[in-house]
């Protein structure tokens, strides 16, 4: 019990997640049924992968708008290549393409000193363009073998495979960020880039790595989506996912300034968004309202996090003002 209180103190977002679950369960009798839960998990895991990748980038102080396009590119690559080649090749090519997009983002940001939002806006546009060229802007059906669909449909011990994969990815990410030197350096770079640089951290390679991880995760999400829709499509796939992924991270308490946030937060944020869209479907609420509610939720979350900062700042300021004006006096008496 004490342990539970400690965990909730540390991660208040879990409480909010639980509160949402309870409210939705009360609002709709279907919400809590096992097959619906499975459905939520399956649905959320794709956004979850994208949000995980986004978390790495945000923690290091960046942002990645290109994930939706990368996701679309992955669906196209795997479906196009499966026309003639075994799907394993297509899967690897798609993952490789995701990493490549990430590395390009990272290089634009570090070597060419693009602002992250511009660098990834560039790739957001051009990667989707590439996907459209590959697919001729047509949806591609019927190229994937039936086995491939297991990526979305298989269940192990009652849990959908995508959710299991997402769970493993989240655990690995959390471990990596907390227990490896490189993971900590991501926080350090996001927290104070100059301090990290002066402490000998290779800031550039850290940043490039986070974008590469983000591109990889987006490609994984694309592969699952291709299995789920049994197709690849370049024009509309993944539109707006970057915003949902950023929202998931921010709702989970990640600061867009970098250096603050946890994987538990991002996973919770993802599940909140996933549960909400599921519940709204069940309740027959106009999907357009979902967008509005996500927007409001984001505003509430960010306001509550940043007001913590504000309160803290005011408090420390009051302390400083209360200190005697001699504070800051450089000279101690000589004798």
């Amino acid at each position: 019990m004490g342990r539970l209180i400690y965990v909730i103190r540390q991660y208040p977002i879990l409480l909010i997640l639980a509160a949402f679950a309870v409210v939705f369960a009360l609002a709709s009798p279907d919400f809590g049924r096992p097959d619906n839960i499975t459905n939520i998990l399956r649905q959320s895991s794709m956004l979850g992968f994208v949000a995980l990748g986004m978390s790495f980038v945000i923690l290091a102080g960046g942002i990645d708008l290109s994930v939706g396009s990368t996701l679309a590119l992955a669906t196209v690559i795997v479906t196009v290549m499966s026309r003639t080649l075994p799907p394993a090749l297509g899967i690897n090519a798609a993952l490789f393409a995701g990493v490549a997009v990430g590395v390009i983002n990272g290089v634009l940001v570090t070597r060419f000193r693009f602002q992250p939002i511009i660098a990834t806006l560039v790739t957001m546009a051009s990667v989707r363009g590439i996907a459209m060229v590959f697919s001729n802007s047509q949806a591609i059906f019927g190229t994937l073998p039936n086995d491939y669909f297991l990526l979305s449909d298989a269940e192990l011990a009652g849990l959908p495979l995508p959710a299991i994969l997402f769970g493993i990815a989240a655990l690995l990410s959390g471990f990596y960020l907390h227990f490896t030197r490189h993971g900590r350096e991501i926080y350090q770079v996001g927290g104070n880039e100059e301090a990290a640089r002066l402490a000998g951290v290779d800031v550039e390679s850290i940043k490039i790595t986070t974008y590469a991880i983000c591109g990889f995760m987006a490609a994984v999400a694309g592969l699952i989506l291709a299995a789920r829709t049994q197709s690849g499509e370049a024009v509309r796939t993944g539109l707006g996912w970057e915003l949902n992924a950023i929202a998931a991270a921010a709702i989970g308490g990640m600061s867009l300034m970098g250096g603050v946030g946890t994987i538990i937060g991002t996973v919770s944020g993802t599940l909140i968004i996933g549960m909400m869209s599921n519940a709204f479907n069940l309740l027959g609420i106009d999907p357009n309202w979902q967008r509005i509610v996500v927007g409001v939720l984001l505003a509430v979350a960010v306001a509550s996090y940043s007001n913590q900062d504000l309160l803290r700042a005011l408090r420390s300021r009051a302390n400083r003002a209360a200190a005697p004006p001699g504070a800051g006096a450089p000279g101690a008496p000589a004798e």
């Binding site: 301090a195 402490a199 600061s255 250096g259």
Partner: peptide, 22 residues
């Protein structure tokens, strides 16, 4: 030790002490 201290405010004392040398 620079005049503007080179610490990372949002991280723990431990991590700041071992910054760059975990």
């Amino acid at each position: 030790i620079y005049q503007e201290l080179m610490l990372i405010p949002e991280l723990s004392v431990v991590e700041n002490v071992f910054l760059g040398n975990l």
